[in-house]
């Protein structure tokens, strides 16, 4: 069967926004908090202020949905900034006997995006990054667009450029 085509989420998707979903620790106890934030810009460097950003990650044990919900959704503000409160995921089993470095999947939906774009945020200086089977598929020169940097204690930043210089690597999943 053919799949139903995607259409843009448009500028009024906030009708379904639940701002508390940006805080993945809202129902969780005992996890070290981590802020994952970034700014989304377009090909002119202008902020993308009407985007819906979704994230999906494993829990600290590297498992999905095993007591840690792992899903978040956040609206970008007028400066194009998204901000999640979460905790650092553990390494996730990969194809074969490989291990995936800790990562957070990020999907962006917005006016002007015919379908959502998806990338991953890895954590800079994580030793497992060097052997990550997905990062290995990304040209070395563009890998930095998927590496969140620690910009303050507990705060990791990954800016997303939809188009142009430093364009973020998007994944076809």
């Amino acid at each position: 069967m053919h799949t139903s085509p995607s259409q843009t989420a448009g500028p009024y998707w906030h009708l379904i926004d639940q701002p508390e979903w940006a805080d993945l620790l809202r129902d969780q106890q005992g996890h070290a908090p981590l802020t994952l934030t970034g700014r989304i810009t377009d090909g002119d460097g202008m902020p993308c202020g009407d985007a819906m950003v979704e994230m999906w990650q494993a829990g600290p044990d590297g498992a999905y949905g095993n007591g840690f919900h792992g899903f978040g959704r956040c609206a970008t503000d007028a400066d194009g900034v998204f901000r999640f409160t979460t905790t650092r995921p553990g390494p996730v089993p990969g194809p074969g006997n490989s291990l995936q470095a800790p990562h957070v999947t990020l999907s962006i939906f917005a006016r002007g995006l015919m379908h959502h774009v998806t990338t991953r945020a890895y954590f800079e200086a994580e030793p497992l990054n060097d052997a990550d089977p997905i990062l290995a598929l990304v040209p070395q020169t563009r890998r930095h667009t998927m590496l969140a940097r620690q910009t303050a204690p507990g705060v990791w930043t990954l800016d997303i450029r939809l188009q142009g210089a430093g364009e973020t690597v998007f994944l076809d999943i």
Partner: peptide, 11 residues
């Protein structure tokens, strides 16, 4: 100004 110019990388 919002479409990516690089093809997405299949994983």
């Amino acid at each position: 100004r919002r479409h990516a110019t690089h093809a997405p990388i299949a994983i």
